[in-house]
């Protein structure tokens, strides 16, 4: 997965004028941008893995913006989505927001509104990207643990004493003590509290990865 954060604003709109204009607007503030005229085109591009945010026209020939959003969600590509539409009505906005859209802008939109939304999206993406990287590191460390060490770690983070863990796993307290030190070392955890937090992240992040 991407190791460094290189955000790109992806613009999907069927109107060539709008595509060019939005690209130009983003370029004026130094934001890199890629444009696509259909949802299908973008799906080809996103298969390689993307980072950044998506400016998506709702109403397009073929698959609509909402269709694309659904497909991306299914694929687990969690790009922040900013919808733009020439005719926003309430049901459409509700649907888009429920599906996780960051913003719904009505054409013709204010340039600052779009830029704010894009910055917001990129910031969100940056944070998420950071989280993802940390999780990767934890997962790498976790992967170095042996099976016994993982069992010990799972019980340690529940707050059990070494004696209890030994009884649980059918061994002696001393062995557990060694395993525990090994877990703390491999996970680079300075305290029990930190190990608990790491375990928490791992169990949450297993869904994300």
């Amino acid at each position: 997965m991407a190791e460094s954060f290189t955000p790109i604003v992806f613009v999907v709109d069927d109107d060539p004028s709008v595509r060019t204009a939005v690209k130009r607007l983003l370029a004026s503030v130094g934001l890199p941008c890629e444009t696509f005229s259909t949802a299908a085109e973008f799906l080809v591009r996103s298969a390689d893995g993307v980072s950044g945010c998506l400016v998506l026209d709702v109403r397009m020939p073929g698959a609509s913006g909402l269709d694309l959003q659904r497909v991306l969600n299914q694929e687990g590509t969690d790009l922040p989505v900013i919808f733009v539409t020439a005719h926003a009505d309430v049901p459409l906005t509700v649907r888009a927001m429920k599906a996780g859209a960051l913003e719904v802008l009505t054409k013709p939109f204010d340039d600052q509104a779009l830029l704010d939304a894009v910055y917001h999206a990129l910031e969100q993406e940056r944070v998420r990207s950071h989280d993802r990287e940390e999780l990767h590191r934890l997962r790498d460390r976790f992967d170095t643990l042996t099976g016994r060490e993982r069992e010990v770690m799972a019980l340690v983070v529940t707050g059990m004493l070494n004696k209890q863990i030994a009884a649980e796993l059918g061994t002696v307290e001393k062995t557990i003590k060694v395993h525990r030190a090994q877990v703390m070392h491999k996970m680079q955890a300075d305290s029990l509290a930190e190990l608990v937090r790491m375990a928490d992240r791992l169990s949450q992040g297993s869904r994300l990865l």
């Binding site: 004028s17 204009a21 005719h87 779009l114």
Partner: peptide, 22 residues
């Protein structure tokens, strides 16, 4: 019709904004 007319308007606003920024 609103949809159709808003497309070029959107492009106009975006282009003009970009020009102003330049």
């Amino acid at each position: 019709i609103a949809h159709e007319v808003n497309q070029p308007l959107c492009a106009i606003v975006a282009n003009a904004s970009a020009a102003l920024r330049w």
